[in-house]
Design a protein around this nucleic acid. Structure first.
Lengths: 111, 111
DNA sequence: ACATTAATTAACACTTTTATTAATTAACGA
DNA sequence: TCGTTAATTAATAAAAGTGTTAATTAATGT
């Protein structure tokens, strides 16, 4: 997927409270689609679609265990969001410069 | 605006390449709506709506100067995105722990 | 005053998103 | 085998998003 198109998918996926909620749930550990659906008043197919959207955006990896589909959080898509914000960090937070400096050192890339 | 609703607005706003592009443009400095529209093939009203979406999400402050509407980037909404990712940082990047530690020190909140 | 420029509003068309219920697929287990 | 459970697919409806052109508002400057 192209960079722009993937950011479209990523941000669209995050633009729904239920989907952000599902990510928060998965941050605590894997869950099946039914488990993910449990807290909500909406139908299972609706949740199934939300999961699909998150999967297409790269937030979720879906496994197979018998008739279950255990979902796990794939952190890389979230990291891409963080990367996107980093391009603006110099504007919103002067501390970023210090952070950036520290990160370079942690990476073994001292200036 | 409620927290959830504002994140909806923020992420929806970012879910369109033209709008992300406009933010990138404004990161370089203020611009009027016409200036923002210049690079694109779409109509001025379409850009005007994109700007409105960004404004409603809190990304843009729109001033008044005669018949011009100089737009400036409001970094706080971008910071909110960064904050959102921070809740997941412990998953996607072990370095965050070190970063977090450093940030606390920078804030004058040593452990 | 009047034409020009900047921008928004209005009315409309088209597509996508989000949800529903019913039907289907697939694997389990008694 | 046959009923149960997990999940998806299909058909559909309502709402939101994205774009268009034409009309309108508001301020400029000669």
């Amino acid at each position: 997927m192209q960079d722009d198109a993937q950011l479209d998918a990523i941000f669209s996926a995050l633009a729904h409270p239920t989907r952000r909620d599902i990510l928060a749930r998965l941050a605590k550990g894997p869950a099946t689609v039914n488990e993910l659906a449990a807290p909500y008043d909406i139908s299972l197919p609706a949740i199934s679609k939300h999961v699909r959207v998150l999967q297409n955006a790269g937030f979720i990896a879906k496994g197979r265990n018998a008739q279950f589909r255990p979902c796990t959080l794939d952190a890389s898509a979230i990291a891409r969001v963080a990367d996107w914000t980093a391009a603006y960090s110099h504007i919103w937070d002067a501390r970023f410069d210090a952070m950036d400096h520290v990160l370079k050192n942690l990476k073994g890339d001292p200036e």
